[in-house]
Amino acid sequence: MTLLLKAEGLRKGFTLHLQGGISLPVLEGEALELHAGECVALSGPSGAGKSTLLRCLQGNYGVDAGRVLLRHRGAMVDFAAAEPRLVRDIRAETLGYVSQFLRVIPRVPALEIVVEAGVEREAARALLRRMNLPDRLHSLPPATFSGGEQQRVNLARGFGPAYPILLLDEPTASLDAANREVVVALILEAKARGAGIIGIFHDEEVRDRVADRLHRVLPIGPAPATEAA
């Protein structure tokens, strides 16, 4: 199967300058591969760094070391070292992302949010309907929508453009059972067309239905103290 993404040697920590400069190491030597048509679920205890890893793969966080090679326009490029302009191109064409919450833009209607992601108007409308968002909501900005409705706009924006690689951060967290089924179907359809998906799924039932394998993210403890023999 075609390799879509290969992360290697990822290191990521945070230095909190406002808290006396304390360092929080989160990822160390993290490596991951993603192939066309598969879904990899990140697993591991809360706080282990699953979200941090996902954000590093999305470019929202910068890595301290390591590479994120991903297939963009047919060639592998190091996304972690990419210039901002290239990151924008990659996000527009290759790398989709569904965050946990929609960051709403004032005054932009739900339909336009999906269209602006590069989806034909009718397809965007159909997708919103499929997400059980009635037509009367399409022309309204999602600022006043419920959390679940906003998340469904977010999902439509993420699944609409048929990205080759899709990152999902708890895509079903605020959804009811019916909408969860829609998301499961969308994931399975994306895999069938050859997309690679990396996701965090707290809902184990969903995870087991969509994921081909688990990638465990383990907390990195403080360096072990030298023990007396």
Partner: peptide, 12 residues
């Protein structure tokens, strides 16, 4: 840098 990275992962 990238707008969302500077705001979500500020270094300085």
């Amino acid at each position: 840098g990238l707008a969302d990275r500077v705001l979500d992962d500020p270094r300085h």
